[in-house]
Nucleic acid binder design. Sequence first.
DNA 1: TCTAAAGTGCACACAAGAGTGCAACTTAGG
DNA 2: CCTAAGTTGCACTCTTGTGTGCACTTTAGA
Lengths: 233, 233
Amino acid sequence: MTEPSSTRTRAPRRDAAENREALILAAATLLNRDPNASLEAIAAEAGLSRRAIYGHFATRDALLREIAVHGAARINAAMLSAETETEPRDPALELAAVGARIWHEVDHIRVMALLTVRGPQVQLVGDALKPLRDHVHDIVARGVEAGAFRADIAVDRLSRLVESAAISVLDEAARHGLTSAEGRRLVVLSVLSIAGFSAREAGAILLALDLPGLDDATFTDVPTDPSTPEATR
Amino acid sequence: MTEPSSTRTRAPRRDAAENREALILAAATLLNRDPNASLEAIAAEAGLSRRAIYGHFATRDALLREIAVHGAARINAAMLSAETETEPRDPALELAAVGARIWHEVDHIRVMALLTVRGPQVQLVGDALKPLRDHVHDIVARGVEAGAFRADIAVDRLSRLVESAAISVLDEAARHGLTSAEGRRLVVLSVLSIAGFSAREAGAILLALDLPGLDDATFTDVPTDPSTPEATR
DNA sequence: TCTAAAGTGCACACAAGAGTGCAACTTAGG
DNA sequence: CCTAAGTTGCACTCTTGTGTGCACTTTAGA
């Protein structure tokens, strides 16, 4: 499958890679809705047959593993992109920034969060998300230390509650609709609120972030049939 | 089973009712950990054989239904007990009170929350929790109206986020440990934070509640300028 | 103590989902 | 156009879990 060995007489077909991506995306989408979605359903969502899955992934777990890796890569990338400005910033701003960036990976993050609870890849997913967790933990620790964040909750716990707050918004997005701009805003506000800021303060920090276009692209739209045009890429 | 008809020659055994309770409790406990726990596992947890379950519940769904009803009863009772003081109180205090009372029903609430997402009884569970939801929604609406709660998030959404905040704490409790006092305190603080209060304000409201057993885990120290940010624990 | 109620253990049947093998068909790359 | 890569459909096997029937044992209540 992933053998670029010399025995290959011809380059692999291009659409195979696309289908593989489609499968991962379909799985992420469906598992968001139902963590027990069958391979049958996932294949259908991707516009393939169940049998075809086994051309890309040896087992169900392998597929889930790929989702984890794939998702983690995107998430960590998003996290780092918020970090590029290397100047030691205000923890509040930094937390808000991470929240905002993370929002773009809604689907991936939520699936990861779901997979963290269930399945045999708990460990794997946990590890994959560790960089993000550590980063958040670090920001929270610094925020508390500086006296900006609340000090009435232990740092470790507070850090986890901040994560949960973010995921709650992703849940809200999955269940009731949220535009991209709304979602980002809500994530930031929720996260800052749990960190101890009042609504007013959180609003101020949000403004200080001066986010890119408020009219960003909307939701990740997963077409059921191939004729549907793609939106954001 | 539920036939008190004249055909009964003898009263049902007392332990049968106990076992029924045990099953419901076991199911609630296990489903908290794994929403797909098998009847085999549930029966074992209750100290019975799988076969015995069918003496109490016709199907798996019937058992889940009972959990929902059972849990809803306790939850709504807890909610009402917070309401007995009929004086129109401060919404903040009221929200905090509901949060504190609700904490006692951790297991039940969390299962309900899990069942709300999955399973065919989504509708049922949703209905069962409706009183609580409505109550929270009402408090939030009044809080916003009064200008006490944040106004930068639509009431409906805010109400749901408040619920989620509470559930996040229950998650934290399920995964890492939480004493009863700690849990109650965290629920109140989280819920108030999302409602828009700063850490300091939330702390003050918590004190105003004057709950029993707050002595063991009091970090009433919320400094704006931290002399010594004492690490908790 | 007597006995029905409750529980046990084992036998099934049934369903759904994962994973495999294979022949036949489509499609993209050369 | 040729052909291998990719896909499909079907027919399995295997596993896990639900639900049921029935003979048997245990237990609480009168």
